[in-house]
């Protein structure tokens, strides 16, 4: 086929969390520009399996940019060279024939490598368990129109709620800070009436868990916002800072 590419992949291989790991170089041939980045890895893995070798482990699920599982650090940027795109939605037409592509896992002490390119992001789950929810008693759903919500607030809450928890913000941040993720999860409730009851407790507990997981602190570099596939805004971090400081100063519990 014409227009197909030959590329060189430098991929991080690491047997398990305790292995030191190293780069392996793999030439890949006849890659169609219409393939996704993950499909290229499927091609490579099929070959490795045929050769009796261990395929490259990487996370993926939906492959349509909504689940947040895919997580590759490509040529120095999470999810590769495009903006607003996950690795699964990155296509090989973003590369040129003959390119060398360096692929690494997310790097953070809070995201230990499980194998190769797959990292353990359960730290995010524990932050959500610490308060990233609203408590609802079961029963009939309330009539939607009984809770008026200004359109601007609803839009901002919805924008925050588009975070897919991929962790690219942590991967991009020079401090491995999780502030963009946590602030999105705090904001989606802070902006809505349903989130008010637990608003102060939520931000206090989620930030405490974020710190306990060993993520770095925020120096407002903006790398997270620039690399976030969902365009989560830095204004969420400002809102979380406000809420956190306000809650520390005014929460009812001593």
């Amino acid at each position: 086929m014409s227009g197909n590419m030959n590329l060189t992949l430098k991929v991080w291989r690491q047997k398990n969390k305790d292995d030191r790991g190293k780069f392996e170089t793999y030439p890949v041939q006849h890659i169609s520009p219409d393939m996704s980045f993950l499909e290229m890895f499927d091609v490579l893995n099929e070959r490795l399996i045929n050769e009796g070798k261990d395929p490259v482990a990487f996370d993926h699920d939906c492959r349509e940019g909504i689940c947040g599982m895919c997580s590759m650090f490509i040529n120095g940027r999470p999810h590769g060279p495009l903006q607003g795109v996950t690795t699964c939605q990155l296509h090989m037409r973003s590369f040129k024939n003959g390119d060398t592509i360096v692929v690494e896992p997310w790097r953070a002490s809070a995201f230990p490598v499980i194998k190769d390119l797959a990292v353990d992001r359960s730290a995010f789950d524990r932050i959500i368990s610490a308060g990233g929810f609203i408590s609802v008693n079961t029963g009939n759903a309330q009539d939607a129109n009984s809770i008026p919500i200004p359109k601007d607030d609803a839009d901002a809450a919805f924008a925050a709620a588009t975070c897919i928890g991929c962790g690219a913000c942590v991967a991009a941040c020079k401090n491995a800070s999780a502030m963009l993720f946590v602030s999105a999860k705090v904001s989606q409730f802070a902006l809505l009436p349903q989130g008010q009851a637990e608003r102060q407790e939520r931000v206090l507990n989620m930030v405490a868990q974020m710190d306990a997981e060993g993520f770095g602190s925020c120096t407002n570099t903006g790398a997270c916002e620039a690399e976030c596939p969902k365009g989560i805004s830095l204004s969420n971090i400002a809102r979380m800072n406000r809420d956190y400081i306000g809650a520390q100063l005014s929460v009812q519990k001593a």
């Binding site: 430098k10 120095g76 940027r77 690494e104 790097r107 002490s109 020079k174 770095g216 602190s217 790398a223």
Partner: peptide, 27 residues
């Protein structure tokens, strides 16, 4: 904080394209 932030990423990247996403002064 800068020291603790370095420790939050004990194993660094081989390739980092910082200028693609942030101003150097911030880093």
């Amino acid at each position: 904080l800068a020291y603790k932030n370095m420790k939050a990423r004990p194993v660094g990247y081989a390739v980092v394209n910082g200028k693609a996403n942030s101003h150097w002064t911030s880093r």
